[in-house]
């Protein structure tokens, strides 16, 4: 073997632009320990120096549910599709807050971690991925609380609980929420590095989007154009399918779920491509 051929065995070549699909998944895999440690960090650090600690995981959705219960069920008297109002709101809140958390927390990943990113390299996707997986811990405990509230209704309120086979879809629903949150989040985070306007937009955008999703009202309460519009929201089929699986009341359509799945995969693809392009130069603009 000639000396020149040997010299050309570089482990890495740094060039200005990456190809659109030049995504280094193997590198991401190599950093899986870092993903685990970031998840651990977020969980450990979040409730340090609080008295209630991880109990806050539960208090936040509990209070939201109670507020919704009083305002929308007692005062506004909105329909809950025959489902006990507490259960209806809580399931909406728990699912929605997981989606919102994934979206909100990934959307400022670049700006929030600029000091780390400015000093050391690791695949930037590590952080949003850690956020999404870390959120699962919280989501899991909240889901457990939902089950407890459900049991409470079964035993003390004579609620007739009739789950159906669609309940097997729940892990898939969570996957859809995570993917949607992650991909929209990284698209937004890529945009905020240069234009901070986007973060203002997002802050109230997520809140508004909640009202455009069947969280506090069932899809069945809407009709006509409004219903079509709601079905365009990719989160709608997830929420409705969950309610269908748990309570038997809700809109279950494989086509609508398929729409969400395609939407999620496409945005994830777009998100990763954009993120990948931005991660190289964002330190200069952030």
């Amino acid at each position: 073997m000639s000396a020149t051929a040997q010299q050309e065995q570089w482990t890495e070549v740094i060039t200005p632009r990456k190809g659109l699909l030049d995504i280094n998944l193997r590198e991401l895999w190599r950093y899986r320990d870092l993903i685990a440690l970031f998840i651990q960090r977020d969980i450990k650090a979040q409730y340090k120096q609080t008295i209630l600690g991880p109990l806050w995981f539960l208090l936040q959705p509990l209070f939201s549910t109670l507020v919704f219960f009083f305002i929308f069920s007692r005062v506004a008297k909105l329909s809950t599709d025959g489902v006990p109002a507490m259960l209806f709101y809580m399931s909406g809140v728990v699912l929605w807050s997981y989606f919102a958390e994934c979206l909100n927390k990934t959307s400022n990943i670049f700006t929030l971690n600029a000091n780390i990113f400015g000093k050391v390299y690791f695949p930037r996707l590590v952080l949003p991925i850690a956020v999404v997986f870390g959120g699962l811990v919280r989501f899991g405990t909240q889901l457990l609380m939902l089950v407890l509230v459900l049991l409470f209704h079964v035993f003390f309120k004579e609620y007739h609980f009739q789950p159906n086979a669609a309940i097997l879809l729940v892990p898939f629903l969570v996957l859809l929420l995570a993917t949607l949150g992650l991909s929209l989040g990284i698209i937004f985070s890529s945009l905020t590095t240069k234009y901070k306007d986007v973060s203002f937009l997002l802050a109230f955008g997520v809140q508004l989007l909640m009202y455009a999703s069947p969280v506090i009202y069932p899809l069945s309460a809407t009709g006509g154009k409004l219903r079509t519009l709601l079905l365009l929201n990719p989160v709608t089929p997830v929420l409705e399918t969950f309610k269908f699986a748990m309570f038997g009341n809700g809109y279950f359509s494989p086509a609508a779920l398929g729409y969400t799945a395609i939407f999620a995969v496409v945005t994830l693809g777009v998100g990763i491509v954009i993120f990948n392009q931005v991660e190289k130069s964002f330190m200069d603009t952030v």
Binding site: W10, V13, T15, K280, S281, D284
Partner: peptide, 10 residues
Amino acid sequence: VTGPTKGQMK
């Protein structure tokens, strides 16, 4: 940490 504008580094 940041990428070059032109050229490369091996």
